[in-house]
Design a protein around this nucleic acid. Sequence first.
DNA 1: GTGATCGTTTGCAACGATGCAAGAGCCAGT
DNA 2: ACTGGCTCTTGCATCGTTGCAAACGATCAC
Lengths: 340, 340
Amino acid sequence: MRDVAEHAGVSVRTVSNVVSGYPHVSATTRERVQRSLDELGYRMDFLAKGLRSGRTGFVALAVPFLAEPYFAELAQAVIGAAARRGITVLVESTAGDSEVERKILSGGLTNVADGVLFSALTLPAADVGSAVPDFPLVMLGEHSVGDHLPRVGIDNVAAARTAVAHLLDQGCRRVVALGRNASENGRQRTEGYRQAMAEAKVRRVNWFEVPVDDWTRAEGYAAVAELLEGDGPLPDGVFAFNDALAVGALRALDASGVRVPEDVAVAAIDDIQEAAYTHPPLTSVAPDLDAIAERALDLLEEQGRHKADDDDPAPVPGRQEATPFRLVVRASSQHRPAAG
Amino acid sequence: MRDVAEHAGVSVRTVSNVVSGYPHVSATTRERVQRSLDELGYRMDFLAKGLRSGRTGFVALAVPFLAEPYFAELAQAVIGAAARRGITVLVESTAGDSEVERKILSGGLTNVADGVLFSALTLPAADVGSAVPDFPLVMLGEHSVGDHLPRVGIDNVAAARTAVAHLLDQGCRRVVALGRNASENGRQRTEGYRQAMAEAKVRRVNWFEVPVDDWTRAEGYAAVAELLEGDGPLPDGVFAFNDALAVGALRALDASGVRVPEDVAVAAIDDIQEAAYTHPPLTSVAPDLDAIAERALDLLEEQGRHKADDDDPAPVPGRQEATPFRLVVRASSQHRPAAG
DNA sequence: GTGATCGTTTGCAACGATGCAAGAGCCAGT
DNA sequence: ACTGGCTCTTGCATCGTTGCAAACGATCAC
């Protein structure tokens, strides 16, 4: 920038004014500086700008596994929403490592990012306690830290209830819930399953919850394969807590010759792109990822503004925003067996 | 850091020495500073460090669509490899917008990242010409800019040839190549297909190339659906240029009641995780993503060092690194129809 | 003609860290 | 006792940019 100033015969400050669009710059000067800018191929140094102004224009997004379709699609949505606001996204993958997650929550990304969007899996709740971070932070999806942290995501209980109610509507009598684990997400979707089963007055003997460790295709496959090998009564419906589990379940059912949806109907949550191409296509609850991304960025900006205004106001009440979702019905759940 | 220095009763420079592990610091001082560090919850400012030292510890990864499984898995591999080196990855999604791609190549990410890994789809070859960027850059996969830019990826011709040869080995007589488009990648995989067909002395009448725009499930589905509706002779093998196309193809075949692999064998390239869970599981060529990520980062660091050494040496000859791949055979290609 | 006002431009300091080289204190060797 | 060499510590300048407020010149009203 110094070079540009010299080349244009003005002060560095004036160059800065031109670059940052300061209104009180004469047209002739602006043009001359602009020419020098182009000629010398000037590129702004983000670091210096960030250092001086305290804002970097970056937002960090931390997800457990970027290679999981759901998180990849979420990341894509966040990147798109951020791009519309002129914000760049820094994507971090925690690999479900609670050490990494703890570092992020304790501010490991501060002053490189203006804010952090955090989709936590195994959250080190104990370590975090009720401490409020000293930087803009919005949680995506459920977490177990407490409601003092702002959060954006679908209502998991309602989403699960919707999926299970749909299966019951289709005539299922014995619906298995596949996917309970240690996560808060797992707890809530289990709750939704139970509510739907209770509401439909399904007899307790037909309730069945299959636990897993992770919500992956492999675990879904293994769990259902084991279920089919067992000597218990077979289910006529499977509610998988996410699409990856459902994909694994479908594969296991297919491998065992169980027909979907004739023998077993399947529904899940996430509606990843893959869901439209499974065998058969998968019924799934679709969260509005764009809405999640937009709302999350709104909340981040809001926190950023509050920080700037006062010194330390009540740092934004932990708002819990529920974004819309809808049930996408595909072939995997469309059967109507004879009542029984 | 100033606060810490004051609190510990030393100069800021000494604090810096402790933080950066400078050896000549007495044990007592080090300990005292460390205590103040912890007590005040000091966190290093990456921006200031980067501004002063000229290195940020960031590497940018630009991919067309993060939501595409292949790129998501690639990103995960890069993030993992970078983490092992203490490098943080900044993921950018170009959305196949050549405007964005041009910006990246002209250095839009410089001085925020020490280097750029670029997986280009539609590359604005004309705009770039043979200009060598003034920052460390490594291309991932094929591109059409020319060989003056270093590149890491599998040998696409060989990979395609391997997949097609496998289908022919399985007894296929009429193999369709699905996926030719304007990309360099498409050109090369087409070339591999032709080589394999020629090598096996397949009669020209049985060669068939189906073009698409993008390598997505939707396009794969549409292309195969159209093929099945047509009145031409049906193929007994489909070679899809990537797994997404294959997934779409499998769905279309399934929907039309065509049996895989009995009627049509299918193979593709990428071996995304989803490939193991399709109906039936998909035979695919698996690139070694970890190797790609590691080599790419190696080349970046090498370029970084060269930059540091001299002023402007021949900026690293455009090395073209071919990483290993292997064919993963699954059910989608395992048939042996009667010779015909 | 003179002072007030406005638009435009500028100098200085600062953001938080590190490179450099010099200063302070200590010990051993002569 | 003096010097050289060592370890440990420090001050100063600097990276590229922007906030702040003053300075500058010109126009305007009286």
